[in-house]
Every structure is written in C-alpha cells, then in structure tokens.
C-alpha cells in the first residue's frame, strides 16, 4: 500500500489535459482538430511539430482558453476550460502566451507592455514592478525597461513577450513558434533563455515549432498531422 502511494506521489502532476478535442471553422467545413488527446505534466517541455495547418496553433489556443472546442474536454490545472469566468482566470493566472509575432503594443514602453497582465489581474504595482525587474534581469532587458517597443531588436521584443507572459507567474507557457521570426543565432539565444526560465520557474512549456532542432531539446515531441497527434516521442 505504502509503495503504491509512494509511486503515485512520484508521478508528475498533470496540469494540461485534452480529451477527444474537435475543432472546426466555417460551420464545420474546415475541420482543424479531429479528436486530439493530450497531456502535459508539471514542469514538462513539449514541442508540437507538424506541417502548417495541422492544428498546432489551434490546439495551443484551445489549451490557453482563447477559443473553445466543438467537442471534447480541456482542463488546465484541473479546471475545466469552458466558462467565461474560468477563461479569464486562466488567462490571468494559469497560462502565459508567447507568439511568433511578439504581439506587443508598439506605442507603449517595454515596462508598460509587461505590466499589462498585472493591471488586468489587479496585481499591486509595487509587486508587479519587483517581478518585472526580476524577469528583466533574467532576460537581459533590465536597462531597456523605459524603451519603446519600436526601439527594440527582434530578439529583445521576443524576450519582452516572454517577460510579459511570465509576469503573473503562470504555471503553463504556451508558445506558438516563439523563435519563428528570428534569425538562427538570435533564435538559439532566445530559446536557451526560454528553456532556462521555464526550468527555474517550474513552468510547463507547450511550444508549436517547425524547428526540429529546437523541438529535440524539449522533454517530449508530439507530431501532429491533419488535426491529430500521430506520434509522441520522449526525447
């Protein structure tokens, strides 16, 4: 009995789960996800690979509560993703997003962009600033806080997006081709940073990518094709 309990407690906790998830657009004429089953454990890094249009981004959006599935169940940290209030809570505290295009507000400064999630969640400004300084130190942006986004390089912008995504200490980071718009060298640097931060913060990373080299550095690689996960490889 004690052995069983010990085994169970050694099992990593599942923080993301998708069961039989279907998603289509245009009244069902474009079927994007066709019964996806997916699990991610706490602290795990997972790469989603596959050709364009196979449903990687759609799965990320569903996992992050940006969209709802037609069928199937999704849960984040044990919370079913299906209600508005849950979605808001999900976006504020549970999940952080990093996109291929940094999706920062160009007319705001780096600091202001990063503080948006704290404002949304009503986090005390002093605490938010302390967190931002901590992240900025980690990402090498400490001296760029007051700079406007237009003044930053592509790598800096993506690092800013990473800081913003981690501001409210989410447990899950969903990254959609986070280095897709960067050159090879910058891409490597940003990805190193990404892996380093998710490891130290204990964040679960699910990343859609075409870059097999980067994917190989994740704990697991999931191959998607035509809306289904075909292969799960533990790297």
């Amino acid at each position: 009995m004690n052995q069983l309990i010990e085994q169970a407690s050694n099992q990593p906790r599942i923080v993301l789960r998708a069961e039989g998830v279907w998603k289509s657009y245009d009244d069902g004429t474009i079927s994007v996800l066709r019964g996806v089953d997916f699990e991610a454990a706490e602290g795990q890094t997972i790469a989603l690979c596959g050709p364009s249009g196979c449903g990687k981004s759609t799965l990320l959006h569903l996992l992050g509560g940006l969209d709802l599935p037609d069928h199937g169940h999704l849960s984040v940290n044990g919370i079913e993703v299906n209600r508005h209030r849950d979605l808001l809570r999900l976006l504020r505290y549970e999940v952080g997003f990093v996109f291929q295009l940094h999706n920062l507000i160009p007319d705001l400064t780096l600091e202001e962009n990063c503080l948006i999630p704290s404002v949304a969640a009503g986090v005390d400004r002093r605490a938010a600033m302390a967190r931002l300084r901590q992240l900025a130190e980690r990402t090498g942006l400490a001296d760029r806080l007051g700079h406007r986004i237009q003044k930053l390089s592509g790598g800096e912008r993506q690092r800013t997006a990473l800081c913003r995504a981690l501001m409210n200490r989410p447990k899950i980071l969903l990254a959609d081709e986070p280095t897709g718009s960067l050159d090879e060298q910058t891409s490597g640097t940003v990805f190193d940073l990404l892996l380093d931060i998710v490891a130290t913060e204990g964040v679960t990373l699910v990343m859609a990518t075409h870059d097999r080299g980067l994917a190989a550095r994740c704990d697991r690689l999931m191959e998607m094709h035509e809306g289904r996960i075909h292969a799960r490889v533990s790297v």
Partner: peptide
C-alpha cells in the same frame, strides 16, 4: 483590433 486582442490575451476582461 490587434491591440485589443493582445489585452484580452493578457487577461483583460470585456469590461476592462
């Protein structure tokens, strides 16, 4: 619209 979408992704509610 894109900026509003970013706010939504960052956790802004409809009311915010």
């Amino acid at each position: 619209i894109r900026e509003i979408a970013i706010l939504r992704v960052c956790g802004f509610s409809h009311m915010q």
